[in-house]
Simulated assay, not measured.
Amino acid sequence: MTVTDLPRQGARPTHAMPETALLTELEQVVETNLNRHLSCAKEWFPHEYVPWSEGENFDGVLGGKPWSPEQSRIPEIARTSLVLNLMTEDNLPSYHRAIAVQFGQDGAWGTWVHRWTAEEGRHGIAIRDYLLTTRAVDPVALERERMIHMSTGYAQPDTYDAVHSIAYVSFQELATRIAHRNTGKVSGDPDCERLLARVAQDENLHMLFYRNLLDASFELDPDQTMRAVANVVQQFQMPGSGLADFGRKSVMIAKAGIYDLRIHHDEVVMPILRQTRALERDDLGADGEIAREELVAFLDGLDGAATRFCEKREALLAKQAARRERAAK
């Protein structure tokens, strides 16, 4: 999602640590957190979360039953959110390329890049199998959307160096975890909620890995890291923002309370900033202080926008409830 209209990105600090040096200094932190991740991550299997007994052939070469919307047992908003989540997962080859080029494929960095890719791939497998087995989506439309989205690919902003990438994924993994969990809750389907809760557990571990790297980056180069955090928070978009009709669908998702500005501010941005002490640090130079001032000003605007959105949503829901009550009389 695009949080709001964004100011121009600030300049890189004058005395920023070179990218190669930063990645080298972080190598031991990566290894430590990779080992922690492997000790915490639990093996799981997508096939165990899919109600295969409900499946039947679709029309086509096997001559099955055509798809129609009433065959789905989950509401439209849950289907919309699930498809957005799946399309995001499907673009994994582009994400893998981006972080493999950024972080490298040797040593602990390379091991992490491949492990992360394997775990994210499992999410896409599980979600697609659930959607098709339960007939929650039109399989033809789903495949066409996948082809278009993957043909477009994904490209990081040209200004994103390694520390910007670390900052971005720290926020993005947490946002993804919350979007998955909340989608499961609004689905009204225990199978869907169970699956997405399991996926969210992985996303939380990914967030912890990157957040710890972000914390270490603050210790190595506080000014450069503060600039990266300020830029990322001001520019933040989910990786699926390039999808067709993403804006309309993200508004639907926000109105349903799956992921909105209030959630973004309170449950994604602020927890990362608190954990890294970004707003309380006393080791910043002039460049870092400028970046922090930009960040604080942006957060004030984001908080106000979140409040206004929630107030409008509550007013709209109240009007809808009143109309339903009048119609029932």
Rank of each mutant, 00 (worst) to 15 (best):
217 S>Y: 03
247 G>A: 15
239 P>F: 09
225 T>P: 08
224 Q>I: 07
245 D>H: 14
259 Y>N: 02
245 D>C: 12
223 D>A: 10
222 P>V: 08
255 K>Y: 02
243 L>H: 08
253 I>R: 06
221 D>L: 09
225 T>R: 05
259 Y>E: 01
255 K>I: 00
222 P>F: 09
255 K>V: 02
251 V>D: 10
245 D>L: 15
225 T>A: 09
232 V>F: 06
233 V>R: 00
234 Q>V: 08
215 D>L: 05
246 F>P: 01
231 N>S: 14
259 Y>K: 04
259 Y>D: 05
230 A>I: 07
237 Q>W: 04
216 A>P: 03
243 L>M: 13
231 N>T: 14
235 Q>S: 15
218 F>D: 02
243 L>F: 12
250 S>Q: 15
222 P>K: 07
238 M>F: 07
236 F>K: 06
240 G>F: 05
252 M>H: 07
218 F>V: 09
215 D>V: 05
238 M>T: 12
256 A>I: 00
233 V>Y: 03
231 N>Y: 06
244 A>K: 11
247 G>H: 11
237 Q>F: 03
255 K>Q: 11
237 Q>E: 15
233 V>G: 00
223 D>Q: 08
220 L>N: 01
223 D>V: 09
222 P>W: 08
258 I>W: 02
245 D>T: 14
226 M>R: 07
226 M>D: 04
249 K>C: 02
244 A>N: 13
253 I>Q: 04
244 A>M: 12
246 F>T: 12
237 Q>V: 15
229 V>L: 09
219 E>L: 13
224 Q>D: 14
249 K>I: 12
227 R>S: 11
219 E>M: 13
240 G>Q: 01
222 P>Q: 08
232 V>G: 03
254 A>E: 03
259 Y>S: 02
253 I>Y: 00
226 M>W: 09
236 F>H: 12
254 A>I: 03
220 L>F: 05
248 R>G: 05
230 A>M: 13
234 Q>R: 12
230 A>S: 15
247 G>C: 09
255 K>G: 00
215 D>G: 00
235 Q>Y: 08
241 S>K: 03
252 M>E: 10
237 Q>I: 15
227 R>Y: 11
253 I>G: 02
248 R>Q: 13
224 Q>K: 14
237 Q>G: 09
230 A>G: 09
246 F>M: 15
226 M>G: 00
215 D>S: 04
221 D>G: 10
239 P>R: 04
226 M>A: 06
241 S>R: 05
232 V>M: 04
216 A>L: 07
251 V>I: 05
237 Q>Y: 03
252 M>K: 11
225 T>Y: 11
243 L>C: 08
240 G>M: 07
228 A>E: 01
217 S>M: 07
242 G>I: 12
217 S>D: 10
252 M>F: 00
241 S>C: 13
229 V>G: 05
254 A>D: 03
